[in-house]
Amino acid sequence: MNLDVQGMLKVFDAIGETMAAHKEYLTELDSAIGDADHGINMNRGFHKVHDKLSAGSYTDLGALFKDVGMTLMGNVGGASGPLYGTFFMRMSTKLAGRQDVDTVSLADAMEEGLKGIVALGKAQLQDKTMVDALTPAVEALKKASDNGVDLCGALEAGVAAAQSGMESTIPLVARKGRASYLGERSAGHQDPGATSIYLILSTILRSVKESS
């Protein structure tokens, strides 16, 4: 099945609920190696996304993703604002004019979003950032796309890859962002940004499963 505009609105509502439910958890992860605001910021940002999307009416996914991106950029507050904002804005350029997404178009859009995050944050793999979860997830989606896997199967592979990417950040020493100020002391903690990537992807999967 494909994910249409109505389905995508449900996805973002579900992401908002996930962020509200995991606000304390993400903030706790961030208090170990950052400035203890990731959960609060993500919850605030996606709450605003919910308000923005509820007030709008959308016929194309490009406009929907652009509003998500700009809302996050103005309301998240920390570094995640520009990073997640750029992710969804860059996805919107690939989704412009589309009424729905399948595996191929979602993988393509997410690859574009990842490029935006990397260009802005300049993080590489194993820097202990969101890129460590997002890169393998995008690779899994691209592989599923090449193999003609349906959206559900592709997202399952993407979520599994994001989960192992997220867990792989635990022993790493941070080389980007606030956590890098801690040097060796950042090792032994799971990266909050990689965790929010995993939470978002697993919510998309759950939402797609529920509506199929």
Binding site: N41, R44, K48, M70, M73, G74, N75, V76, G77, G78, G81, P82, G85
Partner: peptide, 12 residues
């Protein structure tokens, strides 16, 4: 932020 919380806003 756009709501006046501590943080920064790209649109602003």
């Amino acid at each position: 932020t756009d709501d006046g919380e501590l943080g920064t806003s790209v649109p602003s």
